[in-house]
Design a protein around this nucleic acid. Structure first.
Length: 196
DNA sequence: GAGAAGATCTCCT
DNA sequence: GGAGATCTTCTCA
């Protein structure tokens, strides 16, 4: 094995730290259609009371309860009537926090992704949160799934962690909390979502 | 029970 | 560059 599963302690840290450290890790998805993997190239951090852009800003609701639970769990929500977004829960139990995985670079199972997306352009397969979940067959069914078990959906670390520079900027698609530079991308990677 | 907003994508101009 | 698609969740009455 050239990869190792990310353990619980990786996730149960400060949300910003986890968002930054998720870059360069590998997202693995296994379904009946086969397995797909992709390199995480873009993330965003969402915290709690101190972050007006976060779902957990206003406190615990039925929708965001996963964010308040144990770290290392998938938080998947539906938005705009069309799209799911994949997050991983961070911090310790009782403290809300999650990292949105915004884009991945397809590594394997690319043919399955193309089929799912009805798209042949590799750079456009998963360069955005909605595209990513569609390419990886992720729906609300995966909400609350434990990513530390290494089953249908999980994250791994490459043995030889690739070297790259990290660029930091303002988050995308939100109206509040814009002053917080909590979006992280792999500098120069062409699989990140466009918009600035 | 109704209304509004939303961590987006795609197509059309 | 702009608007429509489309539906879940939350808030307020």
């Amino acid at each position: 094995m050239s990869e190792s599963l990310l353990p619980l302690p990786f996730y149960s840290r400060d949300t910003i730290t986890v968002a930054e450290n998720l870059l360069g890790k590998v997202l693995v998805r296994t379904t009946d259609e086969g397995s797909r993997t992709g390199l995480v190239v873009e993330t965003e951090a969402y915290r709690g009371r101190d972050d007006p852009a976060s779902h957990s800003y206003l406190g615990l609701t039925k929708r965001n309860e996963v964010m308040f639970g144990r770290a290392g769990v998938a938080y998947v929500y539906f938005t705009y009537g069309n799209h799911y977004c994949l997050n991983v829960v961070t911090e310790t139990e009782g403290t809300p926090g999650a990292v949105l995985i915004r884009a991945i670079e397809p590594l394997s199972g690319v043919d399955i992704m193309m089929k799912r997306r009805n798209m042949v352009e590799k750079a456009n397969l998963a360069s955005g949160p909605g595209k990513l979940t569609k390419a990886f067959s992720i729906t609300k069914e995966q909400n609350g799934l434990d990513l530390t078990l290494g089953k249908a959906l999980f994250l791994t670390r490459l043995r030889n962690n690739p070297k790259f520079d990290i660029a930091q900027s303002r988050r995308v698609g939100i109206k509040r909390g814009l002053e917080k530079p909590w979006r992280f991308i792999i500098k120069g990677n062409s699989f990140v979502s466009k918009r600035s």
